[in-house]
Write a protein that binds this DNA or RNA. Structure first.
Length: 490
RNA sequence: GGCGCGGUACCCAAGCGGCUAAGGGAGAGGUCUGCAAAACCUCUAUCCGUCGGUUCGAGUCCGACCCGCGCCUCCA
């Protein structure tokens, strides 16, 4: 039984989907006014883990992720650049897709864009007006919070307790109550707007998620995810709009992932600790090492991003890669060592039990590393048969449908991924994915010749040269193994 | 002020009432190796922010306190 911590109620509870075997999932997507930073990716990777694990447990998933392509920031950005909204947001949408693939995140089933769903939003606002939950003021339409008594249930907020914030937003005209929020914003000079039956204007921030989720998932669906900062007001407002309009429960389970901080502090451009994915990759790190790091801390815990932690993540992932390489090299037939099957089963049980428990990734990973720890000694003593090694490798392939931290064939082909290759003794013909340059191959071959001639000075010089190229050599009994490594530690 | 999160070894991080406190990284010694690397073996928290309490028994429950952090209408 899978259990999740539901923000609504604040407790870990059994997960029971509305339709057996099916999960309807909505995750808050990017506002495409800029490139995402690694904190955004932390959230998307958490959602990917969630999704992959649900699939692993046999669920079919219908995943919707919105693309917010009209809001204050996209409008401001487009104006500043003197281009249309569509032209302004397009590169960010494309970059989002690229980075998502780079991080091995499965695409959603639907990526509805706000600008493509104006009629649905208008319809929803119309319903709210008709039902008396909304009112007009100076061309804008607001949601009247005091008509929705359940307001504040998700975030456990009492409106009276809210610290009165600065109310200098020029968009806010006269509202009945300070906390009422805009469903529809009156047109302003120079801003894009739509002519609709509820009047000209553009949608408020929250309405798109309510309108698009109902379209693709129905009035009530299973899971809604986002960052903790979305709890209030965004998700609170979504609940108010959706439940007021539809008269039924909006979402059964809310999952919120905690923030990522850098060196213990919130990322900010002024502090110089603000990283986008490209900034990290530019330092030579493998994107899947980044994925591993962002994945390996429980989603409800604040994640402190440091390059030291990234180095540790890389090493941990390397240990898995080395282990898989060693499995590949097993050629022996049989053995009377300890049986492998129980070790694999124990690992699988631990892995599933961990993730079943509100995605306890640490427990799941511990089970995986324990398997490595148990099999490596057998490997070292030559007590693993080829068949057994294949079984262990198959297990890793199985769990990697969830973790997705191993080089995938497509990305490995680009040669960016640290992956063990293997060169038969003396020939340096490399096999296996990962790719290595022709000069690299030639150097390995030269070094093998030098070693055969006991010219160790030359051999070591070549090894250093390859290291400078980011290639580490490991001399094994039956040949030389190479792997690519990232930037130097420290 | 309100709501919430966290403080477990040198670092990261599980455990949340009961065997010798997971796992990863780093470090020390050893085996293997031409040397390395990887792997293996051994070691590295009598103790889980502090002080009380409950209990036969507490990082694990209760209370108080001390730190660090997040949100309170831009924000994953």
């Amino acid at each position: 039984m899978i259990r999740f911590h539901n923000t609504l109620g604040g407790e870990v509870e059994d997960f029971v989907p509305i339709e057996p075997g099916q999960v309807k999932l909505y995750t808050c997507g990017p506002t495409v006014y800029d490139f995402p930073h690694i904190g955004n990716w932390r959230a998307y990777i958490f959602e990917d883990l969630l999704k992959r694990f649900l699939a692993f447990r046999g669920y079919k998933i219908n995943h919707v992720m919105n693309i917010t392509d009209v809001d204050d920031k996209t409008i401001r950005g487009a104006q500043a650049r003197g281009v249309g909204l569509d032209e302004y947001t397009r590169p960010f949408i494309e970059a989002f897709g690229r980075d998502r693939d780079t991080l091995n995140i499965l695409p959603a089933d639907h990526y509805p864009r706000a600008t493509a769903h104006i009629p649905e939003m208008v319809e929803l606002v119309k319903t709210l007006l008709e039902k008396g939950f909304a009112y007009r003021r100076d061309g804008s339409i607001y949601f009247a919070i005091d008509r929705f008594p359940a307001y504040g249930r998700l975030s456990k907020i009492n409106l009276e307790d809210l610290r009165p914030g600065s109310r200098g937003d020029a968009d806010e005209y006269e509202k009945e109550s300070v906390h009422d929020f805009a469903l529809w914003k009156a047109p302003k000079e120079g801003e894009p707007f739509w002519e609709t039956v509820i009047g000209p204007g553009r949608p408020g921030w929250h309405i798109e998620c309510s309108a698009m989720s109902v379209k693709y998932l129905g009035k009530t669906f299973d899971l809604h995810c986002g960052g903790v900062d979305n709890i209030f007001p965004h998700h609170e407002n979504e609940i108010a709009q959706s439940e007021a309009a539809n008269g039924v429960k909006f979402v059964n389970t809310w999952l919120h992932c905690h923030h990522l901080v850098v060196d213990g502090e919130k990322m900010s451009k002024s502090k110089g600790n603000f990283y986008r994915l490209a900034d990290v990759l530019a330092k030579g790190y493998d994107p899947l090492d980044v994925r591993y790091l962002l994945l390996s801390t429980h989603y409800r815990k604040m994640l402190n991003f440091t390059f030291e932690a990234l180095d540790q993540a890389r090493t941990a992932r390397q240990r898995i890669g080395d282990f898989l390489g060693a499995l590949k090299d097993v050629s022996g037939t049989a053995t009377d060592g300890a049986p492998i099957d129980p070790l694999i089963e124990a690992a699988r049980d631990g892995f599933v039990a961990g993730l079943d428990d509100d995605l306890n990734i640490a427990e799941a990973l511990a089970a995986v590393f324990t398997l490595i720890k148990n099999v490596n000694p057998l490997l070292a003593r030559g007590e693993v048969s080829k068949e057994e090694a294949a079984k262990v490798a198959a297990f890793f392939a199985e769990i990697d449908t969830v973790l997705a931290i191993k080089p995938s064939p497509t990305i490995a082909g680009s040669g960016k991924i640290a992956k063990g290759g293997y060169a038969a003794s003396g020939t340096a013909s490399v096999s296996g994915g990962g790719g290595i340059s022709a000069t690299g191959e030639a150097l390995i071959a030269d070094r093998q010749k030098a070693r055969a001639a006991k010219d160790f000075a030359t051999a070591d010089a070549i090894r250093r040269e390859l290291l400078a190229m980011g290639i580490v050599l490991e001399d094994a009994k039956d040949g030389v193994r190479w792997k690519k490594v990232g930037p130097p530690k420290g």
